[in-house]
Design a protein around this nucleic acid. Structure first.
Lengths: 179, 179
DNA sequence: CTTCGATCGTGCGGAATTCGCAGGAGTAGG
DNA sequence: CCTACTCCTGCGAATTCCGCACGATCGAAG
């Protein structure tokens, strides 16, 4: 697939539209319209976030400078972030949990309130028997208890919560592009 | 805090043990025993996965080469990975869901089976009304339906599942160290 | 049809970073 | 004391990053 991109480069470049046309319409109203080349760049960086721009350029058929500019734009737009990820349990956070939340009233405002809490690492609005799913990372049991019972339940609009304490993280991947 | 580390460097270096002693005992039996310096390095890379080694070294009080060697070891050991992360909805995966799974028999073997599926991005064993929580990423509704009803439920030992389809991702962070 | 402005890619040279390797220092065990 | 091992440092050399000027394409306006 990389060779495909490379091989078609010159044709693309002088073609009228090439593969840079938006791959899909925006659904959120704020989707920054990614083309195939940016997707390929993201895919490269999902394999290795420190891969040199020149190597990425060779893989996707762009110059080093062009890759650099695209990556910078993707970062600026917030489409992508390049970070180190770990298993929190390994790094000293002893308690982690997924919390299902039921809301009365405006779900989004509750989601915003929870997002503002540093212990909430992941907040998503869902359809199903929970309105929100929230992943929280804590230092110990006391901290966990405090966050769930004092902080989350104190948010106006939170009707009820159900907690799932993590026992063991089995898989964590970020390479959707590469399958 | 950075200045603390930097200031105490020379003392640490000639001290008998310095801050490099393991911060916590291993709980999993396979935890590679991280010291304070490695934690600080991870923290730097959680802010920016492409930060130069020299800059990290200045922040944690190590030479560029030492940081490089430590980062390489952390990557080799699988303690940390440096990757690009995105909101899958932005990158063209239109359906995403959290699935709670109830298991009869060996939970871990079911977790392994689910981990082997490329659509399962995140698999964790939990305590609570689900034995497993699985996050899945799909291209569209058909794909999602297929994964949940055909693939996940076909795994031996899966008793029941409950799905929470993602409506909107509100927060996604990886900076536990920096708070 | 031409021009203007904006976007995007390329090439280049200098600065900065990464890389590999040869020590030095501390520790544990015999 | 000596060896083996681990971890850090310092230093050239190769590579990469970065800023910038220029060319090409496209849409809109004149």
């Amino acid at each position: 697939m990389h060779s495909d991109l490379v091989a078609s480069r010159s044709a693309e470049q002088k073609g009228s539209r090439d593969s840079r046309e938006p791959s899909r319409e925006s659904r959120n109203g704020s989707s920054p319209q990614l083309d195939a080349v940016s997707l390929a760049i993201i895919e490269q960086l999902q394999e290795d976030g420190r891969r040199p721009y020149a190597a990425i350029g060779k893989a996707v058929g762009l110059s080093e400078a062009a890759v650099r500019q695209r990556v910078q734009k993707l970062l600026d737009q917030g489409v992508m972030q390049i970070v180190a990820v770990t298993d929190p349990l390994t790094v000293g956070f002893r308690r982690q949990a997924m919390v299902g939340v039921n809301v009365e009233g405006d779900v989004e405002s509750v989601a915003d309130a929870l997002s503002a809490m540093s212990e909430c690492e992941y907040v998503v609005m869902t359809a199903g028997s929970f309105d929100l799913m929230v992943e929280i990372v804590c230092e110990d049991d006391d901290h966990l208890l405090d966050v769930i019972n004092k902080r989350i339940r104190a948010v106006p609009g939170v009707r009820s919560t159900e907690s799932f304490v993590y026992l063991k993280l089995k898989k964590q991947t970020y390479m959707w592009g590469t399958r």
